[in-house]
Design a protein around this nucleic acid. Structure first.
Lengths: 194, 194
DNA sequence: CTCGGAGGTAAGTGATGAATCACAAAGTAC
DNA sequence: GTACTTTGTGATTCATCACTTACCTCCGAG
């Protein structure tokens, strides 16, 4: 047998979730393979099953971790703020993810797309519901503004999926002027002075 | 051999695309099977390949048809209108699809999610780019408003994917109050009288 | 009437991929 | 040191699926 550095169960769980984020984030739930995930995580494929039971359970765990991290991000970004200012701070953080965390945005898209599966759908609704609930509480704004806020978030997710983030565009591989304008329009408007 | 009503090639192409919309719309590109599509279309699986070459070509054709139909819908909705009025008319039509055309909204999500594949990605960007181009031309508005418009569209797509359309909610199977508010917030604000 | 092409299928093939099983080696407690 | 748990793997199974091959059956033109 190949000699392997033994790690704790917890470490492996994290490593597999990281690997799953990459795999599922790009190829989706059905498109991603447990074999590839195992390879990325540096373990054998059977061990993935030992750790997570089934592919679906793994995907679900990934979805839950993703939403939990996003909620944490929301909380940090909004710390000490209220109303529209809180939303704008969160929005700014979210836009930063276009540069630093594309994979998580794509994974979210894959989660929505996998909602055909009821188990996954439940996890997704729970996660999304918590985000909406937090935004409502922290901002205290009415549905129109909350919707507009989450709508913008979704647009960013899609832009990430299409490979039209500022990073991709700067890489020069694509030249889609409309995409540049769309991104431009996502930036918050400069405030009129009070 | 089973006796089968012979149809023209064109009819079969349409039938297969309809079947593919259902299959791919719910299960996604990787999750959908050509076998099921054939069954839905009432033909044998090999004939699907005869008609479309590969699964990928079929998916691409579906994506193109979807975007083309959406563009047509935009054009009809905006007929004779300009500026914000045009966008609002289109937006209203799009919201109607939540009730009548959920499948197309879901299929769009699946298309974005399949952008890992370069061929599909190209088709998706082209289709989306045309929609954006049209909205820009017909409305003449600036990026912020165009972005907000498309953002709202994406939010509706996601709501459809999560099974949180007015139809689903009315069916009583789910009770997610935040989803109701999110939908509420998507309706255009009643105009201040001039 | 026959022949060529268009519509259509039954029966494979080879690859992949989720899940299982039996087993090995490294800690750890006593 | 020995028994027990935890970490881990190789080999295998069984199903599914994209795609192919070889064939069949109508129908209209000459």
């Amino acid at each position: 047998m190949v000699v392997v550095e033994r790690k704790s169960r917890e470490e492996r769980l994290e490593a597999v979730l990281d690997a799953a984020l990459e795999e599922f984030g790009t190829k989706g739930y059905h498109g991603g393979s447990t074999e590839d995930i195992a390879r990325r995580a540096g373990i054998s494929q059977p061990y993935v099953f030992r750790l997570f039971g089934t592919k679906r359970d793994l995907f679900e765990a990934l979805v839950r971790r993703c939403f939990a991290e996003t909620l944490t991000m929301f909380e940090h970004a909004a710390e000490g703020l209220r109303g529209m200012e809180a939303l704008e701070a969160i929005g700014a953080s979210y836009m930063e993810q276009l540069l630093t965390d594309q994979l998580r945005l794509r994974a979210q898209m894959q989660a929505y797309s996998a909602c055909d599966d009821p188990v996954i759908c439940t996890a997704v609704r729970q996660g999304y519901g918590e985000l909406v609930g937090f935004a409502e509480r922290v901002s205290g704004l009415d549905p129109a503004e909350i919707s507009a806020f989450f709508a913008k978030g979704m647009l960013l997710n899609v832009i990430a999926s299409m490979g039209l983030t500022p990073v991709d565009l700067a890489a020069g591989s694509v030249a889609e002027p409309w995409a540049v304008r769309l991104l431009e329009g996502c930036k918050p408007a400069p405030h009129a002075l009070p």
